[in-house]
Amino acid sequence: MKSTPKICIIDDDYIYRYTVVKKIETMHLAANTMDFEDGEVALAFILKNLKIDSELPDVIFLDIDMPVMDGFQFMKEFLKIESQLSKKINIYMISSSLDPIDIERAKKIHSISDYFVKPIKAEQLQSVFSVL
């Protein structure tokens, strides 16, 4: 690993964002975190830093249920710009939904690495970091 990985959390739930950041910290995983409260603001950030790899995250934890632009709407837009990215971004769908329809739908999207049900577990975080 060349540098400290950038972890991006897109979720409208402020408590959730907080718990994830704190979890990473308590696990002593080396990471820079950033967070967005919905897909729209996250997408705007990526578009803005499309060619600046140092600004772009290595990992995105993407919530499904969000106001304004939800996880799937975000993915739809992200796929349009993915080819322009020089940096590989691993996207993990994170949701409290156990709904198989949601899970199935997420798995069909090639660019999504995995689907985790909230709350995210230590092992899952560990594996996310291990593949970087």
């Binding site: 739930d13 709904d99 709350p119």
Partner: peptide
Amino acid sequence: THITSHNLRSPVSNLNSLLDIYKTTDDEVL
């Protein structure tokens, strides 16, 4: 179903996460 998986599960999972942090940290301020 939707309500239970999203609207009930997410606060519960948040509570679990917070509790987890609470248990694992020694930082009194936190």
